[in-house]
Amino acid sequence: MDKINRLASENGVVIFSKSTCCLCYAVNVLFRELQVMPVVHEIDQDPEGKEMEKAIMRMGINGPVPAVFINGKLIGSTNEVMSLHLSGSLIPMLKPYQALSAS
């Protein structure tokens, strides 16, 4: 869906989420702990949410949310994000989007 691609490419880190999803919350917390402030788009609060959910599923994710995009590219859902993090591959991908620490 064009709307998903447009929203995903407008910001460095975008999470398509549902406001009641605990896995979405966990991924969001992970990014914040890594000093990245993702743009979170709650599809359950979007009038086009059902269509967006179907479009995300067609992209090949097991569940529609969370759907994580970095630099406009679909990374995946919780399993993919956590696997990247555990392997040490996530932080280099997020480097350009990390806030500068005050330390």
Rank of each mutant, 00 (worst) to 15 (best):
R6C: 02
L7C: 01
L7P: 00
A8R: 00
S9A: 14
S9G: 09
S9H: 11
E10M: 09
N11E: 11
N11C: 02
G12D: 10
G12S: 14
V13T: 06
V13M: 10
V13N: 02
V13I: 11
V13A: 10
V14E: 06
I15F: 03
S17M: 06
S17K: 02
S17Q: 04
K18L: 04
K18I: 02
S19F: 06
S19R: 07
T20M: 10
T20Q: 11
C22Y: 06
L23V: 02
C24H: 05
Y25N: 13
A26P: 01
V27M: 01
V27F: 02
V27C: 04
N28T: 15
N28Y: 08
L30R: 07
F31C: 03
R32L: 13
E33F: 10
E33S: 11
E33M: 15
L34A: 07
L34G: 08
V36Q: 05
V36S: 03
P38F: 03
V40T: 14
H41D: 04
H41Y: 08
H41C: 06
E42M: 13
I43L: 15
I43C: 08
D44L: 12
D44R: 05
D46V: 08
D46R: 04
P47K: 10
P47D: 14
P47V: 11
E48I: 09
G49M: 06
G49A: 07
K50H: 10
K50G: 00
E51Q: 15
M52A: 04
M52I: 15
M52G: 02
E53I: 01
E53A: 09
E53N: 07
K54D: 09
K54A: 08
A55L: 03
A55Y: 01
I56H: 01
I56D: 00
M57Q: 11
M57A: 05
R58C: 05
R58K: 13
M59H: 04
M59V: 06
G60Y: 11
I61G: 00
I61F: 03
N62G: 12
N62Q: 12
G63H: 12
G63D: 11
P64K: 13
V65W: 00
V65N: 00
P66H: 06
P66G: 04
P66K: 01
P66D: 07
A67M: 06
A67V: 01
V68G: 06
V68D: 03
F69D: 02
I70V: 15
N71P: 01
G72Q: 03
G72W: 03
G72L: 03
K73M: 12
K73S: 13
K73G: 06
L74E: 02
I75G: 07
I75H: 00
T78I: 00
N79V: 15
N79Y: 04
V81Y: 01
M82G: 00
S83I: 03
L84C: 10
L84Q: 04
L84H: 03
L84N: 05
H85T: 09
H85P: 07
L86Q: 14
L86N: 11
S87Y: 03
S87A: 15
G88Q: 10
G88F: 09
S89H: 13
S89A: 14
S89D: 14
S89G: 13
L90C: 07
L90E: 03
I91E: 15
P92R: 10
P92E: 11
L94P: 04
L94W: 07
L94C: 09
K95G: 08
K95N: 12
K95D: 13
P96T: 10
Y97E: 05
Q98S: 08
Q98F: 09
